[in-house]
Write a protein that binds this DNA or RNA. Structure first.
Lengths: 300, 300
DNA sequence: AGAGGTTACGGGCAGCGTAAGGATC
DNA sequence: GATCCTTACGCTGCCCGTAACCTCT
């Protein structure tokens, strides 16, 4: 037994309950997993799994090994933290983000991560918060930056930044500068975040306080697409100002004031699971905090 | 860093103070050690050794790594002890023995080790006790079974068995059955163990108590060779009875009684150093105790 | 029948040993 | 100049991925 990767494979098969799932997690093929477990069992002279159960079951020896193997991997991580220079840190970081953050944090964050950890591979998923949270808990992504948290027992969530929402619309709608009431806007659909998101729920709550018959709330997983629709005069949009700075500057969108609705702020958090191998996620979270603490750069 | 052998290599280079020494210890070539350390340094992005010092010096990062690496190797050993079946235990056990034990314990011990640990390779050295002790302390052998101990601070020594010494000579010398005095034997050289051994020193002390001018003490690192000389009537021999059972049974040697010398018993011990990787040595010592506890089998 | 694990086979690459080339005392 | 480490190079053997096969539910 001189190969820690074999142990890592064993641990993932045990955690995920199958060879196939482990192969997906470890970016390799299923026969490769078979071969590694096979070799480990031959090396130790012990059967580790009861095959033909779903999920696959550990033998008593397997259970003992799992405990020791996890400790060994933890020791390795500790050792690397102590002596390895960050520049040589290997591995893949699977990162999930809300679209808003793509327009704010992401460019600088990618740059920082690339500078600090040039040898790691960054995988990226942009989706709405509930999907990201599920992906995080299912182990499909390693770190999520989203408009929400995970349960404290499930992982680490830390507040990152928040952005106010604002009303914007195309000037061609001919809306006045002065304060409006929500009811004056119901001719158009309200373009905002996808149903199922926290922001969408918060907006519904805010709108419920104002009398507005015939309110149509359109949602999209792509908020940029909604901004495009608003520019074309299809509707009135509620979104973070940071997403439409360029359009506001260019005059293709202009801000509105709606007196009878108090828009919530949207708070973003960075979240990751507490795993022996979540060191990279923690490092990325630290960099995200740094970036979030800086002012937004001017658009180029 | 997924290769524990690389870490093991690093640890041995650090312990032995050089690449060449480590290559000898690990049964490989010196360039292989160079390559492994090189890879480790590139992996970690850190320099581990100050080259061009003798003995080679650890950098601060190297010192930190050494600590962690030794812990990892200890954890591996612990894990293997917990789950690996003995039949799959790999490695080489370098065993040193006194010649006497070759004629008593060794055949059964080799059989036992082979049965319990079929996958290990047994290297053997037969030599006198001082040489074995030095070899053990220098790390050239892993376990020694010899007529002596090591300092408690240096390692583990456990009593194994002891055998009485006896006088034997060829019948052709025409010596009487009855009690003799040492002075009657000085016509012949006394054939016994090599100078420098404890047994040799003990014999000198025993002989000093009896008046025997012209005493010639011949020593040999091969006690069997001395038995052969005694058979041919060259001299009178003092050795363990177990070494000449066959010759006594065949009548080519016969026992003498020497009234004015009290021969000491020779106590044999098994000794090994307390190292993280001395698990095999400890296991072999256990088997040696078992074998020593059994009566000697009849000669075939 | 479909999902999951095993077996078979060809190809790529890491690591070894031999041998020659510096560097340091 | 002796000792020790590094570099160069050809080779072996391991491990991977593709693909076909087997085995449960």
């Amino acid at each position: 037994m001189r190969d820690l990767r074999t142990l890592e494979t064993f641990v993932w098969v045990a955690r995920l309950g199958g060879f196939r799932a482990a192969s997906a997690r470890l970016n390799t093929t299923q026969p490769a997993i078979s071969a590694r477990i096979d070799q480990l069992e031959r090396d130790l002279g012990v059967t580790l799994f009861h095959r033909g159960q779903r999920p696959i079951g550990l033998t008593p020896e397997g259970a003992v090994l799992l405990d020791h193997a996890e400790q060994m991997l933890e020791k390795r991580a500790e050792m690397l933290r102590a002596v390895a220079s960050p520049a040589t840190m290997r591995g893949t970081l699977r990162m999930g983000l809300s679209e808003t953050l793509v327009h704010t944090l992401l460019p600088r964050l990618v740059e920082r991560i690339g500078a600090a950890y040039p040898a790691i591979v960054l995988d990226m998923v942009v989706d709405i918060t509930p999907t990201l949270r599920a992906g995080l808990l299912a182990g499909q992504i390693d770190i999520a930056m989203m408009a929400g948290t995970v349960e404290p027992g499930q992982g680490v969530s830390e507040p990152l930044c928040d952005y106010p929402l604002c009303w914007v619309a195309s000037p061609r709608l001919g809306l006045p500068e002065g304060p409006l009431r929500l009811a004056e806007l119901t001719r158009w659909p309200i373009l905002s975040f996808s149903h199922g998101t926290n922001v969408s729920a918060d907006l519904r709550r805010a709108f419920a306080a104002a009398p507005a018959p015939g309110l149509r709330l359109w949602g999209s997983a792509s908020i940029t697409a909604m901004a495009r629709l608003a520019e074309q005069g299809i509707g009135v949009s509620v979104m973070q100002e940071v997403l439409v700075r360029r359009e506001l500057a260019a005059g293709t969108l202009r801000p509105l004031t709606v007196a009878d609705v108090t828009l919530p702020r949207v708070g973003f958090h960075v979240a990751y699971l507490r795993r022996p191998d979540s060191h990279l996620a923690a490092a990325a979270a630290r960099l995200a905090h740094e970036v979030a603490g800086e002012p937004l750069p001017d658009e180029g």
